[in-house]
């Protein structure tokens, strides 16, 4: 390709009027071999373009792993919420049972207290009835003594009467 033609193409190139084919001609000229000294800057440009195009994306494109990872997260949250619900449910049940047991124990204790007090009351009543019997005995004893006193008094009266009759006889 003669220089004049290249220079013409370069003018078009700077005005962005070249076609892809024409640009290919320029690319070939500037990247293979001798470049006219006054066109060196184009050599740098096309050299850079060519070199830059050789850069590639070396990593593998991942499509599935992140997908499943996201799914796993979703399942994990579902599982966690279910576990939470179950534990709350069981916890409530256990708590209720505990509460019931506690109430039962309280009632039992209260009833024991009542029965204890009732027994005490019984004992007191027994004691009272004992004392009443004792009192009765005492009254019997008193009445015995009273009867004894009465007998004694009647005896004394008999003495008195005899004594009086004796005195009367003596006076006569």
């Amino acid at each position: 390709m003669e220089l004049a033609n290249i220079e013409k193409l370069l003018d078009k190139y700077l005005d962005a009027e070249t076609t892809l084919q024409e640009e290919n001609i320029l690319r070939n000229y500037f990247t293979t071999g001798n470049v006219a000294p006054h066109l060196q800057e184009y050599g740098m440009m096309f050299g850079y373009f060519k070199q830059n195009k050789s850069e590639t994306y070396t990593k593998t494109i991942q499509l599935k792993p992140e997908n499943t990872r996201k799914k796993n997260w979703k399942w994990l949250t579902v599982a966690a919420s279910v576990a939470l619900l179950i534990s709350v449910f069981i916890g409530r049940q256990e708590y209720n049972k505990y509460q019931q047991r506690k109430q039962f124990a309280q009632i039992k204790e209260a009833l024991e207290q009542v029965s204890f007090n009732l027994n005490k009351g019984n004992d007191v009543l027994y004691a009272v009835s004992d004392n009443l019997n004792k009192g009765n005995d005492a009254l019997y004893a008193v009445s015995n003594n009273l009867n004894k006193g009465n007998d004694a008094v009647t005896k004394l009266r008999i003495y008195e009467e005899t004594a009086n009759t004796v005195i009367k006889k003596v006076n006569y």
């Binding site: 190139y13 700077l14 005005d15 962005a16 060196q40 800057e41 740098m44 440009m45």
Partner: peptide, 21 residues
Amino acid sequence: AVRVALSRARKTIREALIKKH
């Protein structure tokens, strides 16, 4: 618009290279 932008870019690069050179 694309052509104008491209032309401007190419000229800018070329002129800067000539200056440096």
